[in-house]
């Protein structure tokens, strides 16, 4: 057991070293860490709580504009809340939604994909057809529909996002398992009389986990955008919970008079997704060089 831990730790250190030598992955990682810190320490970092403010103070422009005040660096929204503070708190929503929904999808996809790819047969047929069926729905439309049924709220949001996105992982894991299964090391393990469970978890999984991790990283960005899109349509988390998408939506009626209300949270969102994608693609270059886009 200890040996395992040590190996994993050594691998992680090695990975970190490789990331540091990959400039775009490093930039992505640094920004990402900054966002995580921001989310974790939001109450300390944010100048105000996310929901305080006064209607009297509404539509203050950012500090550098005429009429702006250094007390509200990025200005205030239509009910006078500090936009910077809400962006900082909003990082919590986005990161949580992104990580949690991908983690769940990954686990479901991994289990079902491995079963499907390893055993084939009727289970594989059923699961694959079902996956194909789900693929025929546009993701956003599907999520909107699920949210309409469940109603807004954090966990409903996670459910809506994972309902379909496990399929991506399923397809990847299934495909990889099928191709790994015929390789010599699996044959060898089988010849040694190892159980199917051991073969899948001990032999096949470590060999395909790289591509799963890469896919997971890239999907986090996509999930965050989808969550923001749902919030933008008014069916994400509840108002009061500062989500970037609903902040952009709030400002939509006022783009003629107060451009910053929509612009600022969108910028925060863009930067985060950019960082995740930079990091994810860097990770892919390192872990999965055969997919490298040169």
């Amino acid at each position: 057991m200890l040996m395992r831990v040590r190996t994993v730790a050594r691998n992680l250190c090695g990975l970190l070293y490789l990331i540091c030598r990959h400039p775009s992955a490093l930039i992505g990682l640094v920004i990402l860490v900054a966002y995580v810190v921001m989310a974790l320490f939001a109450p300390v970092l944010a100048p105000y709580p996310p929901n305080t403010g006064s209607v009297r103070q509404s539509f203050l422009p950012p500090a550098w504009q005429e009429g702006g005040s250094p007390a509200h660096l990025l200005g205030t929204d239509h009910v006078g809340r500090d936009i910077l503070s809400r962006i900082i708190y909003g990082a919590r929503v986005s990161l949580w939604v992104g990580v949690l929904s991908v983690a769940i999808s990954m686990v479901v996809g991994l289990v079902l994909g491995a079963i499907s790819g390893y055993y084939r047969g009727i289970i594989d047929d059923v699961l694959s057809r079902f996956a194909e069926l789900l693929m025929a729905f546009p993701f956003l439309l599907f999520a909107i529909g699920v949210m309409a049924i469940l109603g807004p709220g954090f966990f409903n949001l996670i459910a809506a996002l994972t309902f379909k996105s496990w399929v991506e992982f399923f397809r990847l894991v299934r495909g990889e398992t099928i191709s790994e299964k015929t390789k010599e090391y699996v044959e060898a393990a089988r010849a040694q009389g190892q159980s199917n469970f051991r073969i899948v978890t001990g032999e096949i999984l470590p060999n395909i986990i790289h591509s799963v991790v890469v896919l997971a990283t890239l999907r986090v960005g996509y999930m965050i955008i989808t969550e923001a899109s749902l919030s933008f349509l008014g069916i994400g988390v509840q108002p009061g919970v500062p989500a970037w998408g609903s902040m952009v939506d709030d400002g939509r009626d006022y783009v003629r008079t107060a451009w910053w209300v929509s612009t600022m949270p969108g910028l925060a969102l863009l930067l985060l997704v950019l960082a995740i994608n930079l990091f994810g693609e860097g990770l892919r270059d390192i872990l999965d060089p055969r997919l490298k886009v040169d």
Partner: peptide
């Protein structure tokens, strides 16, 4: 949804008094 801005403004003013207010928007 069409009354959301008013609801938020009301909530804001009540919070200034120390009231703990949540706004819930119903889709349906």
């Amino acid at each position: 949804n069409y009354n959301k801005a008013v609801a938020e403004a009301v909530a804001q003013q009540l919070r200034e008094l120390g009231v703990d207010v949540q706004v819930r928007v119903w889709g349906d």
